[in-house]
Simulated assay, not measured.
Amino acid sequence: MKSISRRAVLGIAAAISIAGSAGIAQAASTVRVSMWDKGANAEMPMGLAYATPGLNPAKATMGIKASPNAVKAGEVTFKVKNDSKDTIHEMIVMYLADPTKPLPYIGNENRVDEDKAGDKGEVSELDPGKSGTLTVDLKPGKYLLICNVPGHYEAGMWTEFTVDP
């Protein structure tokens, strides 16, 4: 009788151990990203960069939409589509070390300084209608998804993204 009880206890302990380990291994999160604009002929307003005082996002003629806009920390796969009919876009994941401050910007090039800004990975320039994928391991914090084609970020092509613990 003792050997059956001992086997049962060992079996239960093994099952608990396996179940506990399975909880640790978390499935990757998938985020669908749409990059859009109102067409190449639409005026591209400036002054719509993240953390700009008096920001009015309603003036943007281009943007990025992420669904969902928050995930758990770990492996995240971004499935990105350029929904524009005539403009090339890209998507870059930027970590915000201080979410109250703007990203470092190179004014004469009309783009974010990716090296200084905390670039975590990107889907490089996508032609209109094309798609791309990026998988990265992200820690908890605030991020921005941006398009850094010259002028696009300043025209409002960014969205906030949160990684929860």
Rank of each mutant, 00 (worst) to 15 (best):
T61H: 07
T135E: 06
E125G: 05
T133R: 07
K101I: 09
H89F: 08
G54Y: 06
G47M: 13
N56I: 14
W36H: 08
L103N: 11
D113N: 15
A13D: 04
K81G: 05
R111M: 12
A27F: 07
V76N: 02
D119V: 06
K79T: 15
A27S: 13
K59W: 01
Y95A: 13
E109G: 06
I12N: 03
I24Y: 09
L144R: 02
K139N: 12
L10D: 13
P104F: 09
L48A: 04
I18S: 08
V136G: 02
G121H: 05
E114S: 14
G11H: 09
I24E: 05
M35Q: 01
D115N: 08
A19D: 00
M91L: 01
A27H: 07
S124C: 00
H89S: 04
P68L: 06
L96F: 05
R111F: 03
D137N: 13
D115A: 14
L55F: 08
G47S: 11
V31Q: 03
A42N: 02
A25F: 15
E109H: 08
L103M: 13
M62Y: 00
A40T: 07
K139M: 11
V9Q: 14
G39W: 00
Q26T: 01
A13Y: 05
I18K: 09
D86L: 02
V9P: 04
Y143F: 07
V80H: 11
I106Q: 01
D119H: 14
R32I: 10
I92K: 01
G107Y: 05
T52K: 14
A27Q: 11
V31T: 04
S124W: 03
A15Q: 02
S17F: 13
T77Y: 12
T30S: 11
T135W: 10
E75P: 07
G23E: 10
I24T: 10
A73Q: 12
V9T: 14
S84T: 15
E109R: 14
K101R: 15
K120P: 00
D119I: 03
A40V: 13
D37P: 13
G132N: 00
V93T: 15
A73E: 11
L10P: 10
V136K: 10
G129T: 00
A60T: 05
D37E: 06
R32H: 15
V31A: 03
I24C: 04
L48Y: 06
K85T: 15
T77C: 12
Y143R: 09
V31Y: 04
P53R: 06
L126P: 03
Y143T: 06
T52Q: 15
K139Y: 10
F78G: 00
E90S: 04
V112A: 08
A40I: 14
Y95W: 09
P57E: 02
T100E: 05
A66Y: 06
K81M: 10
V31C: 03
N108Q: 12
Y95L: 11
A66E: 09
P128Q: 00
P45Q: 04
A28F: 02
T100F: 01
P102G: 09
T30C: 04
R111G: 04
T87Y: 12
S67V: 08
A66P: 02
I18T: 13
K38M: 08
K38N: 13
A14M: 15
G54Q: 05
